[in-house]
């Protein structure tokens, strides 16, 4: 991985300003993404995954404030761009499959026309009608849809078909990065799996980078190269998927993985997380995980653990990562 990274998120801090105070939704998050890489972001609901995804496109909520940090796309800091230049990067460089993408379609326009809208915006010179139709047909075929469906309205699609069409739209401008935020949560398990597999195949074929976001680690384990575990707005562990699965170093990751039933191996005893997820209006001091952490020591509640590189490309933010057992080793492989 010597090539310069495609995307660098560098010590990003984002808060939501509310009447009750600031919600610390993204706290000092750093990661990089290379061409063709598949990165997974995992964490329980409300830990800030969507906030990161939205920040990458600068589509954060109105009350969001970037405190510090940079998001660099090919070395260019997106947070410093004026709005109209940022607009040019959207979809062309970074496309997104939204959480709950079932409603991603405007009900009053044909699906094909909505894709065409993106093409018209980003292709110069503009594609002719024939070229556009041809391109949309190809995209539809790629995601396993009948090209004739492009002339239909969203309500004529089933949920799975709509999701495939969303993927087709995300691919339409040949982006170098696709963000898939819970791309399949609303679908039934079989369709979910099909779509993920297809997405993975397409990604490999086209060689684009992809960021998968999910609260369910098992869902994305198969399709990612690298995985980042988030807790309460912080990235607490980042490493090669295989490595993190086999030997999670952060206590939270450890508990998370040991509470995930293994698909192949024998059933393990589940060790559910105790306590409530923290309130990001007023996050715990020191390590944000300390109130729920079985490995916590006194230091944890006072000092914030820094991100520490423990192996090549494997980083952990924990004072006591050495204490975490390696017991779940092999069976945790999905």
């Amino acid at each position: 991985m010597s090539a310069p990274p495609l995307l660098e998120v560098d010590h990003l801090v984002m808060n939501y300003v509310t009447e009750k105070g600031d919600v610390s939704a993204v706290e000092d998050v750093s990661f990089t993404l290379h061409q063709g890489e598949a990165l997974g972001l995992v964490g329980e609901s409300g830990c800030g995954k969507t906030s990161i995804a939205m920040s990458l496109l600068r589509l954060q909520a109105e009350n969001a404030v970037f405190k510090s940090g940079e998001i660099r796309l090919n070395g260019e800091n997106l947070l410093a761009l004026p709005e109209d230049e940022m607009r040019r990067h959207r979809w062309k460089d970074i496309a997104m499959v939204f959480q709950g993408a079932m409603n991603a379609w405007n009900p009053v326009y044909r699906v094909g026309d909505q894709i065409r809208e993106a093409l018209d915006l980003h292709f110069r010179p503009r594609l002719s009608d024939a070229e556009a139709t041809e391109r949309i047909s190809r995209l539809f075929e790629m995601v396993g849809l009948n090209p004739a469906m492009a002339n239909r309205y969203p309500h004529e699609f089933s949920g799975g078909m709509r999701q495939r069409a969303v993927i087709a739209m995300a691919l339409s401008c040949d982006p170098s990065i696709i963000i898939a935020d819970e791309p399949t949560t609303a679908l039934d398990v079989i369709v979910q799996d099909q779509i993920l597999q297809e997405l993975k195949k397409i990604q490999r074929e086209l060689g684009m980078a992809i960021i998968y976001i999910s609260h369910d680690i098992a869902v994305i384990a198969e399709v990612t190269d690298t995985i980042g575990i988030m807790y309460a707005g912080k990235l607490v562990e980042l490493g090669p998927t295989v490595e993190v699965f086999a030997r999670p170093k952060h206590p939270y990751a450890y508990l998370l993985l040991s509470s995930t039933p293994s698909v192949t191996g024998p059933r393990r005893k589940l060790a559910p997380l105790e306590g409530e997820p923290p309130n990001l209006l007023n996050p715990p001091t020191g390590c944000r995980f300390h109130p729920r952490c079985p490995f916590a020591t006194e230091r944890c509640s006072i000092e914030e653990p820094p991100m520490e590189t423990i192996a090549d490309g494997h980083r952990v933010a924990c004072w006591n990562w050495r204490e975490v057992p390696v017991s779940i080793a092999q069976e945790a492989r999905p």
Partner: peptide, 29 residues
């Protein structure tokens, strides 16, 4: 607040286009 408005923004549409083509057109119903 609908998701498709977010999609439209993410596609890189200008605020005006989002407002007129997507939000207003659908709010017309």
């Amino acid at each position: 607040r609908e998701d498709f408005i977010l999609t439209a923004r993410a596609k890189g549409l200008s605020e005006r286009a989002v407002r007129d083509k997507h939000a207003a057109r659908t709010a017309l119903l």
